[in-house]
Amino acid sequence: MNTRELETVWAPRMLSVLRIVTALIFLAHGSQKLLGFPASDGMPDPFTMGWIAGVLELFGGALLVAGLFTRPVAFVLSGQMAVAYFIAHLPQSFFPALNGGDAAILYCFVFLYLVFAGPGPWSVDATRRQRSA
């Protein structure tokens, strides 16, 4: 397999894999907050910041798993993770390894990448684009 084949065939597929795996893990954070699964310490009260974060994580994660409305959803989730980092993690310490904000930073930048890269070929967005062409 040459480099050209890796770029043209596998790079778009791996973009889809990155989107799906990231979204599944992110969705699990939302299901933990809103549904108590997997086990959690408790669920946030409705319409609090924690509850809104859970809604975005659960439904945004589900949309990203499917690859539906990928760019706008990824934009919103990237912003959510930036806000989460600055509100919840940065006040604890400047260093992400000490403040527990590593995941928020990674999610923020993976989602920002998806805004520009799109969903990849294994997505509802790609299927809709093919049908309209």
Rank of each mutant, 00 (worst) to 15 (best):
A104L: 10
L6F: 13
G42E: 07
R128K: 13
P96N: 04
A103T: 14
L34G: 09
V21M: 12
F111S: 07
T127R: 14
R131E: 13
M43P: 00
M43H: 10
G120E: 06
A126H: 13
A84Q: 05
D45V: 10
R128A: 15
Q32P: 05
P121I: 11
T22Y: 02
V124S: 06
L56A: 15
L6W: 11
M43C: 09
A103Y: 12
G100R: 09
L63S: 10
Q32F: 04
G100A: 14
A133V: 12
A117E: 08
G100L: 10
A39H: 12
H29W: 00
A66Q: 00
L58S: 13
S93G: 04
V21D: 02
G54D: 09
L18R: 01
A23M: 07
F75A: 15
D41Y: 05
R128T: 06
F86N: 07
T8Q: 14
G79N: 05
Q130G: 01
G50Y: 05
V9M: 00
R19Y: 03
W10E: 00
F75W: 10
P121Y: 03
W122L: 14
E57G: 05
L90F: 15
S123R: 02
A82G: 11
G61K: 04
F37T: 15
L35C: 10
D125E: 09
A117R: 12
I25T: 13
G36N: 09
A23H: 01
P72W: 12
A66D: 03
D125S: 02
F116L: 09
F111I: 11
V110R: 00
V21L: 15
I25N: 00
L98P: 00
I20W: 00
D125W: 07
A11V: 00
